[in-house]
Design a protein around this nucleic acid. Sequence first.
DNA 1: ACTCTAATTCTTTTT
DNA 2: GAATTAGAGT
Length: 966
Amino acid sequence: MTGISPNTEQRRLIESTDGIYRVNAGAGTGKTFSITRRYANILEQPGIEPEDILLVTFTRNAAAEMADRIAQQSPYDPVQLQDAPISTFHGYCYQLLRRYGHETPSELGIHDQIPQSLDLIEDGIRESKLFNTFISQFEDRHPEYEHLFAAINDPGTLRSLTTELASKGVIPERNGWYQETGSTLTGDREAFISIFEQENQPNEGAYGPTQSNARSSVSWTDSEYVPDAPKAEDVLGDTQLHRDSVEQAFDEDRDELLEFVHDVYFEYLEYALQRNYLTQGLMLVLAFVMLSEDATVREQVRHEYVMVDEFQDTNELQFKLTLLLAAENNICVVGDWQQSIYGFQYTSIKNIQEFGERITRYKSELNRGETRVPYSVDETEIETIPLEKNYRSTASILSLARETLTVPATNGDSVDVEAIEDEMTSLDATNYVDNSQIKAVTHEDEIELILDQIQHVVGNEEYSVEVRDEPASTDEMSQGEKEAAEAERLGKPSYSDIAVFSRNRSFARDLLEKAGEYGIPMAYEGGVELFDTDQAKLLLAWLRICESDDQRGWATVLEEAGYTLQHAEEILDDEAYPDAMATFRDRLRESETIGGLARIVFDEYGYDGAYANGLLGELTGMVETTLSTRSEAITYLEANLKAGSTIEIDSSPGEDSVTLQTIHSAKGLEYPIVFCANINRRAFPSYGKPSAGTIQYQEPLGLRQRSVYSEANGNPYVYKHWPNNLLTGCLPSTYDEERRLFYVAVTRAKRHLVLTAGGSPSPFFTELSVDPVEVEPSVEPRTIEDMEKDTFSITVPEQSGPQRMSVHAIMDDSVYDDIEEGRGTEFGDEVHQFAEDYVQGADVSPVGGDQQNVAKLLDSFDGEFKPEITAILPLNTEPPITLVGIIDLLVITPDQIHIIDYKTDLSRHAEAEYRKQLSVYYHVASETYPDRDVSITIFYTANDEHVELSPLKLEALCDTARAANQ
DNA sequence: ACTCTAATTCTTTTT
DNA sequence: GAATTAGAGT
């Protein structure tokens, strides 16, 4: 890319090691090269070890790549760098917290410690289940919030609210907010008023003033609001909104709302810690508290040099963490606001745009009461280093890229072009041959058009790209020689030189399907809605059929087999299923595992592609941890389908195929020829659903409710909340992030760019300086021989990290065979559920003898109860295995830990197998509470027998796990 | 020329 | 449920 020697700007970055630097690293400017060189350069200073340099990246992959490249450039080899702090914020803080943070929760007034075996939940479905359980208990506990809950249609949205607050650095403690971090929740009145005044200026029409932006975007129907809300005439002026009603709206009483959000947030944190788990966001919060409170730890861990990559993708909390983790003012943040496209993940573009202002403010916030940031962050000493030499694209591409940042997104969109251009990093091309083809094509059937254009481009001399490395340019060459050398490297493009980007996944999916029909080689990269595929739906159908001859299941299967709707209905009515299918169902019922069942289904239907393999991988992964029955598998599939979960499918296409991906997933990559597709109205720029929560946080308004419950007229009703409606109407809607997304798409291209749109192009397509052309597509299907030449081979990625295994996997399956002796698994589930509810003080009374026995046992204990604790035991096996299980109940007394597992068996024949299970819990508990005695016991609920077992040694468990893993 | 109403269609993904 | 925009209405 940059040859061997850095250019002037890069050299300045590499050699400026001490001090505070903000680096504006535009697209394709050799950022990774410069950072790794800088790292190596710092290492050369006397007395500096890798340990002294913290390098933070956005993804795990990026961290690994950085370490690799550094190893190439420094005397340290990859093994020596393995323990160096080159990591993501999350990875790094997780280590810190586990090592030093056991007591941290007490700083917030929470008794539970952070155990070694802390479970960091990444699976959104699992977390939302836990959160929902929490919130229903919360609702019971806090009848005073009943009217608030009445207005909240989906309590699950409170979860994303806590995530958002965590990323803003808002942290709850038992009584109020930690270190005044809650002050931002009331909003910024001054900032709001200044925006309001701007937006409420009347516009200029041909016949005098017309409605202001704010006035025209607020609609007001009196009957939608509570009876005592202001009326339309109080709010809406001729051309402006009345200022006093807007001020009244901003100053509405929110004390109770704030208290509610505090209680939900704080009690959820408490709930999670009680159950030994945290989310990524909450984990960072605790790491932050630890570093703020514990001066000893802070001084011990902080680093002489700190570098943060992709700084435009950090949030406020991460900015503050950066300051706490630096020992001196040797801080270097690298990023590009123009490529900030993750706002929906609560990243803050202002972290890099207003770096100087923020660093000063955050320092003083952090130093309240105690000096936590000891070094000077004087704004005048902060240097900005721009990297402006682009090694990727031609000048034509770069010039179009500039336009994308100011292109109007809607018809009347007024973009402050000058203000944006002032902020822009201008990029200079370093290519010599600018042979760029840049065009905008449109046709009613956009997919046909794209395929047609791909065929038009492949093998076309006009779209030449660099096809070989030789001859290389050297510094000694003259301008003309370099140009000639570059021209000589050019040649006709093939499929693999092309990437097609789409704003959304659904368009990409349609395109992929059509490409398959025509035999045009194309491979999708990135997340796939795996549970929304035919494969998943059929599997779900067969699971339902096996479980209960479910009608929906049969309907899906019959439809797939080609039965007419009418015929299928007759079959369903008579329950006269086709013989072959019934036989197949019976065969499925015999299969012992969910994975085995899925495999039979996929074999039967001839599904052996990426989706089927991906599903098998997911299912076997889950079966090992939590799934064991068909009904659990059904629930799992349904939940994922509903949540629209996406799974990364790794496709390694044949040698020569077009890459297809979303723009987001293309960030950081480059391609010789880029198609930017689907630039249609409502698709790109995209707009529509804002976040669904009834309670929202928005700058500069702070926390607001969107709807309220009231019985004002004697009839209970959920009204729209008028202050929120008025205030949000005063805020301008901006499409900046959509424009930046467009910018990212265009700057991926090295040489050629094709913009495509269908029947109704968006302003992004029509308002650029490239004139759109209507093209009549004619796609030629490829012959079968052609297609066979590059059939796809697709692999499922290997699981990385230690293998997770359920404790049940190390037990002999036969114990389950006659365990329940006719009482069914449901019976066991009910008893367990009762026990959990009973411990948590829910209002339940025992049903049946088993439950009475459980209640009696629980009453006999004194101590702190912790039900349903996830236990994680990493084993030192090769390959490493981690055992996972759920402890029914943990009873904690000052000197003892009791582990209790309920069994509803009628006899004790399986005790030897249970001993393995409980031994795992024993070792987890012993490690977490080294100072207390741990006992493991089984409680047989039927016979009221409480049996203590002696734990197996760790070595024995390793052997068993190893054997089960074969 | 301006305002109002009805019709239309609704995303991205890492830790 | 909300934002845009086309088109009807004033």
